[in-house]
Simulated assay, not measured.
Amino acid sequence: MNQDIPPTLEIVEHDGGKHLVKLSGSWNIRSLVAVPGLNREISSYAADKNTQWDMNSIAVLDSAGALILWKAWGKRMPDALQMKPEHQRLFERWQGVEIPQREPVQSRSRLIITYTDRLLAGFWTQLLQVVTLLGQLVLDIGYLLLHPGAIPWAEISITIYESGVRALGITALVGFLIGIVLSYLSALQLKIFGAEIYIIDILGLSVIRELGPLLAAILVAGRSGSAMTAQIGIMRVTEELDALSAMGISHSLRLILPNVAALTIVLPLLSVWTSSMALIGGMVSAQTTLGINYQQFFDKLPDAVPLTNLFIGFGKSAVFGLMIALIACHFGFRIQPNTESLGNETTNSVVAAITVVIMIDAVFAILFMGIGMP
């Protein structure tokens, strides 16, 4: 079969020392793969513009073979070229077409540097966008102070119910179980040193100051933050955001402000609720493992945990709520009108919100290191 003849290249001296390159065989992709050095050989002869080419003996020529010859010729037809009419059409398709060049292979270190640059640039861009949302939020608050009738009470109320009231069950369960686990593990160590009574100090400080607000924020970020992002994303997919813009309704005033206000109000209350359930779980475990009764727990707790810790927990919870809502809205508006973007940005929203919550908690721990300690 003609398709099985390998591609060959023959050099013939012609017309006073000029070279005639005679091509024969099958110049298709299947045959060319078997002769890897043929491309360099063609390019070396094509460098001489006086070289003549004879392609009449080629049995089979496909687009791959024509492209190799076309690139070797410098993306133009040689002056002295003989070929079959049916092969002419394969070269005509490449005339005026920009052939993409292969990108040079980068070293591993260069790839790492490029990836790091893109990561930092993306982080900086998103940080500026979040700051822009925060600035727009301040402007909206100023507008509402001058126009109290425009406050979106209905949206704020609905968000408080969805993010706060409907989260009471899961936060109570998680808080109660964490209190039991923390109390049980602490009791095992305190028994060794005969310091069972200090379990009240450990539970009070760790739960009211740290674990309660942090657990509530993480649960709200995973539950309500993702819901806010998905809700805005669905509005993008269904073109509701475009409809709001067409009607002159502000996105920030009707979507961002209610979410931020609701979470800023509801998260401190949820943190108190979660802390209370964690303390109840701790009391149950302490009474079971150490024999500390409930009355003794209630009498010792105010002395072990100053009231300042409750205010610190309140303050950080409000900041948590503000940042969770801002991040959820930020990633919601980044969603493109397709389902893949919806899933990716919702995941990014939850991860970013939880990360920011932990970072803010670390900042609060450093700033208020010596405050509220008994």
Rank of each mutant, 00 (worst) to 15 (best):
T116L: 09
L9P: 00
T346L: 12
F331S: 02
L367W: 15
I354G: 02
E155R: 08
W94D: 03
C329S: 06
V97M: 10
E240S: 15
I160F: 07
D15M: 13
K316I: 15
H330V: 05
E10Y: 07
G17F: 11
L203V: 12
P100G: 11
Y143C: 09
P258L: 08
I197S: 14
V12T: 08
R236C: 12
A230Q: 06
E210M: 07
G96V: 05
R108I: 15
W94I: 06
I5V: 10
F333D: 02
S226A: 13
T308L: 09
I29A: 15
I360Y: 15
L270N: 01
F320A: 00
I335T: 05
A318C: 14
V351I: 15
I68K: 04
Q3G: 10
L32C: 08
I256A: 10
P152A: 14
L203P: 02
L269H: 04
P268A: 05
L185W: 14
G233H: 04
A365M: 08
M228G: 03
D361W: 06
E345T: 08
I371P: 05
W70Y: 04
L119E: 11
F364A: 11
G315P: 05
E13F: 11
D242I: 10
I151M: 10
F298N: 10
V33F: 13
Q336T: 12
I192D: 13
S226W: 08
Q189F: 09
T264D: 06
L301I: 07
L139K: 10
L326H: 08
D15C: 15
L190A: 06
T171E: 05
T159P: 03
L20M: 04
A217M: 12
T288F: 11
E13Q: 11
D361R: 03
D54F: 13
L111R: 14
I199Y: 05
P148H: 09
L9H: 00
I141V: 14
D117M: 10
S109M: 08
